[in-house]
């Protein structure tokens, strides 16, 4: 859930909230200097990064989802210990961050956001999309998730609940979308093709059987 709990906003918590490693801070410093000098601009950098994010792609995450759809035991494991279940497929974060899988159901839709610093499960989803890192998405997803979803073309029935999960540096989420109807005969490989990156963030749904990306 969103953790906008004032009890957790004591000053001494800040050190746990936000930390840049030396190298990470140096990248920001370079970015600052080079932008000031007019040698780079953020839009050009985002454009270059974006060409890679679509290629590296979230295929690892799609495999996790396809397996959860096909193997109830794996789905249970994912529910109880997503970190271990995902690691069993060989996908681990470099910093040992914990993963939690949140399952969409007919009653509830899950949406992941990081209001802090764009924490994102790189190991399973690749690089985050530019919009995920943008302040408007981060703040609006918490205040008006239904509106944000509609902008992504996802119109949910009014009766469906939306839960917003706020990632932290230590705990990151992957949404397990609902398995589309009519996919009973598909193998895991074909099922994986129905799983988009956005469906694992919660800003999209899995592709309907026979549909295209």
């Amino acid at each position: 859930m969103t953790s906008e709990d004032p009890m957790h906003h004591r000053d001494d918590d800040h050190h746990h909230d936000n930390h840049f490693s030396d190298t990470q801070a140096r990248v920001k410093a370079l970015e600052t200097v080079l932008t000031q000098k007019g040698l780079i601009d953020p839009a050009a950098i985002d454009a270059i990064v974006e060409t890679y994010e679509t290629k590296i792609g979230p295929r690892n995450g799609a495999r996790v989802v396809a397996r959860a759809w096909s193997e109830p035991d794996f789905a249970d494991w994912l529910r109880s210990d997503a970190t271990a279940a995902i690691a069993s497929l060989g996908y681990t974060g470099r910093q040992g961050e914990h993963m939690r899988a949140v399952f969409n159901t007919p009653e509830t839709h899950n949406l992941v956001v990081c209001t802090l610093c764009s924490c994102y499960p790189w190991a399973v989803l690749g690089l985050p999309p530019v919009w995920y890192k943008a302040p408007p998405y981060r703040s609006r997803a918490v205040i008006d998730p239904r509106g944000v979803l509609e902008e992504f073309g996802v119109k949910l029935p009014e009766t469906k609940k939306i839960r917003v999960w706020d990632s932290t540096a230590e705990l990151r989420y992957i949404v397990i979308p609902e398995r589309p109807a009519g996919t009973e005969g598909l193998d895991q490989e074909s099922l994986g093709d129905l799983v988009t990156r956005d469906s694992m963030i919660g800003t999209g749904l899995a592709i309907a059987a026979g549909g295209t990306r």
Partner: peptide
């Protein structure tokens, strides 16, 4: 600047962009 970014990160509360 590197140190400044590190202090900025530490000083930024949860929920705010750094």
């Amino acid at each position: 600047l590197t140190q400044s970014w590190q202090r900025a990160a530490e000083a930024t509360p949860h929920g705010k962009p750094i």
